[in-house]
Write a protein that binds this DNA or RNA. Sequence first.
DNA 1: TTAAAATTAATTGTGTACAATCTATCTGAT
DNA 2: ATCAGATAGATTGTACACAATTAATTTTAA
Lengths: 144, 144
Amino acid sequence: MANYEQLRLRNQLCFPLYVCSKEVVRKYKPLLDELDLTYTQYITMMAMWEHQQLSAKELGNILYLDSGTLTPVLKTLEKKGFVERQRSKDDERSLIISLTPEGNELQDRAAYIPEAMGKCIDMDLEDLKTLHRLLHKFMDTSIK
Amino acid sequence: MANYEQLRLRNQLCFPLYVCSKEVVRKYKPLLDELDLTYTQYITMMAMWEHQQLSAKELGNILYLDSGTLTPVLKTLEKKGFVERQRSKDDERSLIISLTPEGNELQDRAAYIPEAMGKCIDMDLEDLKTLHRLLHKFMDTSIK
DNA sequence: TTAAAATTAATTGTGTACAATCTATCTGAT
DNA sequence: ATCAGATAGATTGTACACAATTAATTTTAA
């Protein structure tokens, strides 16, 4: 029988990426539950806190999500009162997302999350910085 | 207005992990389409190629997936003729997954995928090795 | 000017993920 | 021997993720 060493899970890059990504989202869950946000809703709100107002298109570019994913997320966030959705006057095709006062206030309640998450990760800072740098490098060289 | 630097997407570890993971899966898609496999089905088959026979429980431990995810994946792989599902004689609770001849042959057709994927990633080998090492370290220190 | 092409969201369909619950089976302590 | 607890999968419900298609609007080029 052939022994395809390169087909072993432990030798792939994809698999630890996939596992680590899911694990981080899992670790966020109890923290995000208190804000009534899912992980996808959380990163959407992070983009909104940073930019205050964005079109759905711009949001998709920032988050690497298409309208099939974003449309229901934005409708949910609107239902929760954190954002408003309205068509652009300039271009009726474009959907403008803006923060509500409640959405803005949520940022205060979210402010402790990055630090709380940091405490969950038992790796030294140097490794985390390297990991962060290499992931960004991977994104920059591999996407699109 | 407060400026929560640590809440910016670019300063998170979670976000590049999430984006890179999705991006890698997206890059696999055209290669896996030829095998009639999704990414989740592919890593399941990789575990099977490595072990020949596993219980659903063991598969879940290897892949970090629970029965809610695995049950439909395994039923699909059975329908495609790549694995067999049968209850253990020793313990009726346990579901034994084994490779069919077709499932085994699929490994030959999958053998070129790791190399093809490698060519899609435009990062030097040293960085990729470091990334691989740090992701495994992250998995080992952060999960469970 | 106007018809074709491009752009933006929304919709549809498939396939995960995972928490929570359920069901069947097995194990162990009395 | 038996029943309480543990264990293994299956099921249910919610929420993505994304490809493909659709619908509405805008842009562009003949």
